[in-house]
Write a protein that binds this DNA or RNA. Structure first.
Lengths: 290, 290
DNA sequence: TCTCAACAGTGTATGACGTAAACATAATCC
DNA sequence: GGATTATGTTTACGTCATACACTGTTGAGA
């Protein structure tokens, strides 16, 4: 029942009942991510159930939302690894153990912080600008959100429990293609392709965002990543890469998904757009054929 | 110079010189992943330089490759979090500190293990089956590789230094579209789209692979993830999702990217294929237009 | 052949981490 | 006003990466 105080229900007693080995349990906890299916059910429950309102006892100085907000502030300032119970607690002016009155363990806090950090999806651009414009709008927003909070991309999305905001982003995407006449199955397929592309191809820019948030200039970052790729040049094992990298304008200044076009480097956004247009072309073709 | 003994060169002295705070340095180390650009250069160097051959002193009982192989065995048996120095060392019958004679820190070991675990890309299918067949072949292989080693997907690929195998996969992809007459820039763009899609949309199946490798049946996994999504049904905030999920055959048995088609559930592979065909359609259209 | 610097692996210690358990304290109910 | 129940702290434990000091081994140069 949801009326039970959520802050202290058996904690990982449930996990222990599943006969996890100690090592598994600990390692999952330390990484902040667990992949046990029973675990996911329990984690999901925690994401959705409202905290119980106790009548007796001292008043809580915080709310779950306070803790989540502090966690997000900590992660924003550093990265996922900086998000420790100690850091969150001292951000709030409490001892680490105080947080365990609000979340049974770190994992639950991270789950909640992740969903909160996803934020709300963007409002639809215009009333009916066409599905391509709407998909573009959604994709840019998602990409921008991930760049703003690179630590979100350190977590595998699907493995995590799906909170309200996670569902909202999906819902918002489905609305972009709601009037195309596609079947429910096709709608989900389109969602899968586009989201797959957006997540998968944002790796580079997220990596850059992470670096710049640590005070590294884009130039430094590009130099470091580029220098890495340069090893391929003149290596007989990589003739294609060698050719392409060599044909770029002199020195390599950007990573693989960022080649230069006849001396004028393209931005990462341009490369992203190009791919997104190809994906939407493929979807459009499918619609025509139906 | 590469002739220096690689096992003990200043260790994180380099990192300290960068004036990282202690917290940053430690958190990066504990997560096994660092995103500092100067770090990447140093890490990349370690991936490529051959270990120095000392003349004096006792013979080393191990090689870097031994350690890397043990690390991969440990990660395969568990996950990325299970990959601890202690676990790798005891897998080899040594103490944790022994590993530091081969790698300056855990991060370097993980980098090496990741690249080794990527393995070699697949051989080309036939002599000239067409670029679509070749891209399909490459994509399936990449997806299969990630499913076989789900822990690889716990790391952001682009942020890691690029080792020999990483470059080989890129090289192999470029070979699949080498004869299409595309410009070098277009080649890289196509690589970026397809790879983005493959990585991004493999999340679900990788999550399943991870679960099954822990003894969870696909049914259990699907039930847990599906139950999660079911919260959207009848929630007024998610009308589209509600409609789609409700229109599926009775109970939700699979996750968002796995809807059921008129009562007959599709496999994840079928959904993956569908998206890949759309992506390739888009690329084909681009080729035609040129 | 002997010597010793260079190296390999170990033992021990440190500080950060997540979190269990016991506690003091505060708010409510009877 | 005591009993009850919840809150936040204190203390403690086990695990982690890893610094440092140590023992023991090897082969190059004397």
């Amino acid at each position: 029942m949801a009326g039970r105080p959520a802050a202290k229900p058996r904690k990982n007693g449930g996990a222990k009942a599943l006969k996890q080995t100690k090592a598994e349990s600990l390692s999952a906890a330390s990484s902040g991510v667990a992949f046990d299916s029973a675990d996911i059910a329990r984690r999901s429950e925690l994401l959705w159930e409202a905290p119980a309102k106790p009548t007796r006892g001292p008043k809580a100085a915080l709310t779950r939302d306070d803790v989540v907000a502090a966690a997000i502030r900590v992660a924003d300032a550093g990265d996922l690894a900086a998000l420790t119970m100690h850091a969150v607690a001292s951000e709030l002016g409490f001892t680490p153990m105080a947080l365990y009155r609000y979340f049974p363990n770190k994992e639950a806090l991270v789950d909640a912080a992740v969903d909160a950090a996803l934020g709300s999806p963007p409002a639809r651009p215009g009333p009916h600008e066409g599905w391509r414009a709407e998909i573009r709008h959604w994709s840019y927003a998602k990409r921008a959100m991930l760049c703003a909070r690179p630590w979100l991309a350190e977590l595998p999305f699907v493995a995590a429990p799906h909170g309200p905001n996670w569902l909202s982003w999906h819902e918002a995407f489905l609305r972009t293609i709601a009037h195309t006449g596609l079947s429910p199955e096709d709608l989900m397929d389109v969602l899968s392709v586009v989201q797959g592309y957006v997540h998968g191809s944002s790796d580079t820019i997220i990596s850059l965002a992470r670096a710049t948030s640590r005070g590294i200039t884009p130039e430094q970052w590009a130099a470091a990543v580029g220098a890495d790729l340069c090893r391929a040049i003149n290596d007989p094992r990589y003739p294609m890469l060698s050719g392409i990298l060599a044909s770029s304008s002199g020195g390599i200044t950007e990573t693989s998904s960022l080649p230069t076009k006849h001396g004028k480097p393209r931005t990462m956004d341009e490369c992203f757009d190009w791919g997104l247009e190809r994906v939407m072309d493929g979807i459009a073709l499918y619609m025509e054929r139906k």
